[in-house]
């Protein structure tokens, strides 16, 4: 989200200048070793619970007790995973989770890019004021409207359907409008001029010229959105009653209260829920670990 850095420095040719001739570790060996030690220790602390989760998901109930903190994979009970999938309608929940993740992503990206483009490129009277309102609503937690929104969806007859989890996404989200606006602001204004010369309407210009160029922003926003929609818990907890519309986090929470002592099963289910995020991570790894960056567009 380097897009947020708009402190006035124009993107110059400085990126071509190399910082130093020799790699860092050759210049200062002792410090390098200290750094490695810190990195290794930190990594251990960070990754240990993660590995423990995986190791535990493969143990027997008795094995969990005797293994304690160890992550040594002494047992491989893959049937914990088959149990996790078969002991509740896993695929149904996974499908619901996917629906309430992917469709809202499309909706949010489209509506936010649209508004972001308008704020960046269609500077008209009051657009500044409206944008200030957008920023202000960013600070307003959705939880404040939790009760009245429930009433709204109740009036619409949408309780116990997936729609309350899907529809609001099509009406933009201030945070992502802000991100898209920043991104579009950075694009050269000449693009618009060229498009106008070609006789493009504003919508066509947005759809055919700007949106394709905003690919890095779209990808980055989609990744962020995936993580948050996939893990959404409050929404389903409020709106979903019946089994057939449950999402995976909701099912896991229910599971925790019903089968709370079956640790391997809980961990296996947790791993399964985390899996899609892991997959996305490894697909988009370069984009993420190098910093989710919007600057690739130039």
């Amino acid at each position: 989200m380097a897009v947020l850095v708009e402190t006035g420095h124009a993107a110059g040719p400085s990126t071509t200048v190399r910082r130093a001739d020799r790699p860092y570790w050759r210049r200062n060996l002792p410090l390098t070793l200290v750094l490695y030690a810190v990195l290794a220790l930190g990594s251990l602390a960070f990754v240990y619970p993660f590995l423990w989760m995986i190791a535990t998901s493969l143990r027997s109930l008795a094995g969990v007790g005797s293994a304690g903190a160890s992550i040594w994979p002494s047992e491989f009970l893959w049937e914990n995973y088959t149990r996790a999938i078969t002991s509740f309608p896993f695929w149904r929940y996974a499908l619901n989770s996917l629906i309430t993740t992917l469709i809202p992503i499309v909706g949010t990206v489209f509506s936010c890019a649209l508004a972001g483009f308008a704020f960046a490129r269609l500077r008209v009277r009051f657009s500044g004021v409206v944008f200030a309102v957008v920023l202000a609503t960013m600070l307003l937690p959705g939880e404040v409207t939790m009760v009245p929104q429930f009433m709204l969806f109740n009036n619409l007859g949408m309780i116990d359907t997936l729609y309350p989890l899907i529809l609001p996404a099509f009406f933009g989200s201030p945070f992502y409008i802000f991100l898209f606006r920043q991104f579009f602001s950075r694009m050269p204004a000449e693009l618009a001029d060229a498009a106008v010369v070609d006789g493009c309407g504003w919508f066509k210009m947005f759809l055919l010229v700007y949106l394709p160029l905003a690919r890095p922003a779209v990808v980055a926003v989609s990744i962020l959105l995936f993580m948050s929609y996939w893990n959404n818990f409050l929404g389903p907890a409020i709106y979903i009653n019946s089994d057939q519309w449950k999402t995976l986090p909701l099912a896991l929470a229910g599971f925790q209260s019903v089968n709370g002592t079956d640790t391997p099963l809980l961990m296996a289910t947790s791993v399964l829920i985390t899996l899609p995020c892991l997959v996305i991570f490894f697909v988009a790894q370069k984009q993420i670990t190098n910093g989710i960056t919007f600057t690739g567009g130039r």
């Binding site: 007859g157 309780i159 116990d160 907890a237 009653n241 019946s242 599971f255 209260s257 019903v258």
Partner: peptide
């Protein structure tokens, strides 16, 4: 058609009654 509500049964019952579902 069965509807298995794992957790918070009474709460879910109340919202579904309110919604008529």
């Amino acid at each position: 058609t069965t509807n298995w509500i794992q957790a918070d049964y009474e709460q879910k019952l109340q919202t579904s009654i309110a919604a008529g579902t």
